[in-house]
Amino acid sequence: MMCTVCGCADGEGRIEGHAAGHEHDPHHHDHGNDASSSPPAEDAAIRDATHRHDHVHADGDHVHYGRGPARAHAPGLSQARMVQIEQDILGKNDQYAAANRRLLVQQGVLTLNLLSSPGSGKTSLLTRTLHDLQHELTMTVIEGDQETSNDAARIRATGARAIQINTGKGCHLDAHQVGHAIDQLQPEPGSVLFIENVGNLVCPAAFDLGEACKVAVLSITEGEDKPLKYPDMFRAADLLLLNKIDLLPHLRFDVERCVDYARRVNPGLQVFELSAISGEGLNDWYAWLRATRAARLVGHPLMHEMAETPDGR
């Protein structure tokens, strides 16, 4: 049975190569580097608090203990008492995401979380990108799907390393699953890690995985009002890729209107129009990828090493 932080389908999820039936203590989540080996602050506070029952504050998320008897709005309940806890519902996921991010930044790995509905062409775009840039960048992929390893197999056919997470009933990836996948995958320092999220325009928007950027992929066969219908996803995105642009002559799709809708929810959103099949517009995406990776490596020790190798790997 696989553990999850956010409880997304306990026991349903699977990560390739991840031992079945193991017990995982969230207090000792460790990605094998010093920075993340200490337990998250909140966990420490909770554990610590079991030894001090009177009044405790944890920094950040406040934990108040010993509030005593029921307060005015719950009168006459002999045994009942009020406990104020003030915790983000996604607090656990966010702690794992922070641990993932710390590790990935330390390793100089540019991590992109790809979000879209099913069938937008994410995997085709990825395989094309992996093929076209294979001599320039080291790239690995974490594939998220409810079932099957089909996508990971498609990625591996390009020669890139990939790991599949099956979420079972889960409708999104969470940071804990991704943490385990990173452990298995061990992306090379200075590489690019793509996380292809479960195809779903709603749920993945809420779950930070520890990525540097969220990249939304919308294909023009889906309708130009998707950004208004599913605003959370487009608000969360750092970049929007409008895919299947080669089909434009065959469809009634107003690109300008779609971009306008997307910028209503996210005024600063950058948009590229492209086609993973015809290759149109891919150069902009590749240029963004190179520039973003380079920008993220500024000040990183790897940058000096790479300056000495001609291919920049």
Partner: peptide
């Protein structure tokens, strides 16, 4: 339906807090 995940997360917090704050049942 990520609301299911959110509720699992809430439940986990309730269970953790039950140990820390020594309660047996959550009413509200």
């Amino acid at each position: 339906m990520h609301e299911m995940s959110l509720c699992e997360s809430i439940l986990r917090t309730l269970e953790e807090q039950a140990l820390a704050q020594r309660y047996k049942r959550v009413k509200t």
